[in-house]
Design a protein around this nucleic acid. Sequence first.
DNA 1: GGTTGGAAACTTTTT
DNA 2: GTTTCCAACC
Length: 749
Amino acid sequence: MDLYDSLNPQQCEAVRHFEGPLLILAGAGSGKTRVLTHRIARLIEEKGVNPWNILAITFTNKAAGEMRERVEQMLGSVGSVWVSTFHSTCVRILRRYIDLIGYGTNFTIYDGDDQKTVIKEVCKHLQIDTKIFRERGFLNAISAAKDELVGPEEYAQKVEGDLRLQKTAQVYREYQARLKSSNALDFDDLICKTVELFQRVPEVLESYQERFRFILVDEYQDTNMAQFRLVSLLASKYRNLCVVGDDDQSIYKFRGANIGNILNFEEDFPDAKVIRLEQNYRSTQSILDTANEVIRHNEGRKSKTLWTANPDGEKVKFRQFMNGFEEAEYVAETIAGKMRGGEWKYGDCAVLYRTNAQSRLFEEKFLLANIPYKIVGGVNFYARKEIKDVLAYLKTIANAEDDLAVRRIINVPKRGIGAASIGHVQEYAIARGIGFFEALKNADKIPGVGRTGLKMRGFVDLIRTFRSKAEFFTVKELIEDVLNVTGYVKELEAEGTEEADERIANIDELLNKAASFDEEFGGEEESGEQSGRSLLDRFLEEVALVADIDDFVENPDHVVLMTLHSAKGLEFPVVFLVGMEDGLFPSYLSISSEDPMDLEEERRLCYVGITRAKRELTLTCARQRMVRGDVHYNRVSRFVEDIPDEMLVKQESAPEPRQAERPARAQNQTAYQQARDAFRAKVFVPQQFQVKKARTLDYGVDDRVRHVKFGDGIVKDIVEGGRDYEVTVEFDRVGQKKMFASFAKLEKI
DNA sequence: GGTTGGAAACTTTTT
DNA sequence: GTTTCCAACC
């Protein structure tokens, strides 16, 4: 058996380890997935462990899918090895036993939007002024409490004395009560309700302990307290727990990840074996040196130094630009240049940034340069309005208790059921302690509803019809039927706007996903865990737990744009790490935070970014950047300053590639190039004005001037400011306006 | 009950 | 700069 041939000694040791706790500290690119898959293969093949007894947990579906695939490649089918994410593992357990702690097993899962809706209603109900107490704050606090396994009651006890926290406790309690009455769980609940189940019903815990005799956890540095407890409970009987992680890549503290879980593993499991994987197989020496220099500045880490047998490669490049436009343009042109060279494909390149908002500039430039690209993240596909609408129909059909879904679609498309009537029904429902849909059935008896009751009756019948069809329809057929009967797509078609077209395209995409789901699971005999659950239920569940990154496929030939967080676990030959500016990355919040750990987390994020690169890495930044409409002047990121000069190729922002290519372009001006030049002119003119400060004005007080948007008017006042003139104009049509001369481009008439 | 315009919030990262 | 939300009108 050549299981060990391709492994280095440390990897071998990790694979060979059989029973007892094992901590694998795996540096970036050190082949941890390979170790995990080999370990699973060895347990089954050499140690005769029943695949049924193995549980492998990851954070994303993508990681889970990859691992399953790789194990299958080694062993053939591994149908019964349980490889899945924390969240879907918990859902599978809860679908089976959650009735033991008072929920229905057909519970729905609320996403972030749903949570926000509930919080809003709670605030209204408790008469909390959301101008003073922000909804977001409540949600964060509740999520943090759940991460720590603190329930509403315990929370209320803990916060005595502090008014703000007491409000939070009130909101928490009401929020949780509403979720329960809707038979819904939020993401955090999935974990903590599973823990609660295990603690309250020892028999269930025991059965899973028996089943999962060997547990492997990936990305262990990102586990929070609740997840840690979950794993500990499961592993406490056989203690065959193998965790893999890298404290230097812990970047989810904001989400409750507790870096202590990995740093203290040896205390929690004193007999743990610890193995370090320090050989990197991914990057060149230059890239690795850079990464080591950056992360070296962090305190409180398990010391390790990555090394590689790979060649030095090219030095890491660093460039600073005047503004974000030039930065994006440089990246676009550099990528275009690489394509002409023939050595690289689009798919080899990735642009990584700190915040999603940065993607727009790159998107614009890539469009103009005809560079195929894909943006990962931003608005999750399943969070889009049209998708949520369709899914709300499906949820209503599947789970009558999901109030949120029912209320979402009761008037979509318009049925003449307005907010007032909905309010009456809801009051009725709350007063009687029944669900919203249940109340709807009695609509004609509810005071204040009046004739709308008839329309509500119609809606109830509609849903009933769908329900009976759902018994024998595939998911795709059901969605199509909903769209046809309700006229949802027709309404969009009638709009005829670009936006409506995009929504229709998204719905088509959803139909495709439904079709492939039907194909994959439709014919399948319902097996153990899933028995008694309809295809529709399972579809909704799958859809509730996917992240945008999960749909990311490596092969297609397009440049990928994503946040540093999304990029974790991925690798690319050519990486552009953009926006390396103090205030953006590290973020302003982390710089001004009292807790130095916040800055360390940003530095780890930077480390993650650098180590995504296999062959070439370019760091860029801009001197001035538009943030929320106004200009910020940023210094070069301190992380770049951490890197010794001699390790970087620094180039000042002289735009030589552009000049070099000009002549060629002039000869062969295509339509798109003209369009691009026009766009460039449009974009850059205001920038020039800004720099030039409009020294002289060709109009004065009392002159008549013309404005592009406001029309004609009379100049009332001109005030000289620091670097511009503030002009007050009395317009004929729109009245008095104040504006800056360099932006307003007023014309004397 | 629906439409529209203006104000306000947002931008750190997400299963 | 963009999106979301709410109030005032139709």
